[in-house]
């Protein structure tokens, strides 16, 4: 795995543009149910949580697949070999975050393929709530963001 799509939950405005873009790119039609990314909403607490395959290093979906239809590309992570997939949906059951979908039209399992390294949802997100980030820089990025407050405090306190 080189890069993954990182979700900045606090930036998501819940517009679902990522869903329409994803279905259009992959299925040439518009249908959030055919999208590889889905915005899960908890309206009462104001939370919007885009969910998509997190490209696990040790993917449960691949481990459980009885047909070995889920493969792992060194650079783009998990992908589905549709010549082998029989649609048993075991992968959906074991994915810990619900990152695998089922296309209601043809009952095929769908999973983010990072648009072959150029994820269109990231490009279309109006709020940069989605970012395509180098995995090796992921923790340093989160660390810096998380510590911004402390850094500002230290500056003010002139410590």
């Amino acid at each position: 795995m080189d890069k993954i799509v990182v979700v900045n939950y606090d930036k998501c405005i819940g517009c679902r543009t990522c869903e329409t873009v994803c279905s259009l790119v992959h299925e040439k039609r518009i249908n959030p149910s055919e999208s590889r990314i889905n915005v899960v909403k908890y309206e009462e607490i104001g939370a919007n949580i885009p969910v998509l395959c997190q490209k696990c290093e040790d993917p449960a979906c691949a481990a459980v697949c009885p047909m070995d239809a889920i493969k792992v590309d060194e650079s783009l992570g998990t992908y589905i070999d549709y010549t082998r997939c029989v649609g048993c949906k075991m992968c959906i059951l074991v994915c810990p975050i619900g990152g695998i979908g089922l296309n209601p039209a043809n009952k095929k399992v769908i999973i983010c393929d990072l648009c072959k390294g150029d994820p269109q949802c990231v490009k279309s997100c109006p709020e940069q709530a989605l970012e395509y980030v180098d995995v090796s820089k992921l923790s340093i990025k989160k660390r810096r963001e998380g510590l911004e407050k402390l850094a500002k405090f230290l500056e003010v306190a002139k410590i």
């Binding site: 405005i13 819940g14 517009c15 679902r16 607490i45 104001g46």
Partner: peptide, 19 residues
């Protein structure tokens, strides 16, 4: 507690969750 929100497909975020 404020979180900006938008309607379907809209970048404008002209409403918000307020607690």
């Amino acid at each position: 507690e404020l979180k900006l929100q938008s309607c379907f497909g809209c970048p404008l975020r002209c409403w918000a969750y307020i607690n």
